[in-house]
Amino acid sequence: MIQLRDINKTYNNGQPLHVLKGVNLDIDRGEFVSIMGASGSGKSTLLNILGILDSYDTGEYWLDGTLVRDLSENQAAALRNRMIGFIFQSYNLIGFKTAVENVELPLFYQGVSRKKRNLMAMEYLDRLGLRDWAGHYPNEMSGGQKQRVAIARALVTRPQLILADEPTGALDSRTSVEIMDLLGELNREEKMTIIVVTHESGVANATDKIIHIRDGVIGSIDENTAHRSSPFSAATLIK
């Protein structure tokens, strides 16, 4: 599904900052993976490159058999729209749109008709237990509800890859568990490839594979099918 070959990325904001120093990574279809690392380790940059939100300097990124490189804005937009669902720490819902309108938005950019769009969006909201909240605006909802709307938005285009950037970063521990359970469920039932970026070991523990990134290179990759490496606990979730 994903092959990264010697990816390098340098930011040139005054002082050149070499963030990714030759990342090699393979993620197969249907994997539920977390990328862990300290702040500044390059994990968010890696996720942005995976999500075609950012470009890389050298190396190769193969997404589902296509080389993602020097894409035009339109090609990148189409690829993001079709292949990838994003889940963000700060939800990134559009404030003046209701839950159902937010979920419809990716379909709108696919050119799906209004009626069908609404039907599909409602279906996903229903699955996430938010049918009654469809007409509410984001500021009328709790953090967990907002994140579930964001997940519904990520799922509505039936992408093959879900990229989640600190999906539980703004949630309390109980909701965090719920969200991670939800992602796990999606992975098992829909065979979706899910990549979660986090710095919380509790979140990482919910995934099947933990990729540690340190100073711009992949450190170690731990298989975690037993989910026993570092369970959610009061200690890890107090922020």
Binding site: G51, L53, E73, N74, A77, A78, R80, N81, R82, F86, N92, L93, I94, L105, P106, Y109, Q110, R153, T157
Partner: peptide, 11 residues
């Protein structure tokens, strides 16, 4: 930015 992330074309 959000719109672009979920697939809005520049146009």
């Amino acid at each position: 930015g959000i719109r672009k992330a979920i697939g809005a074309r520049p146009r």
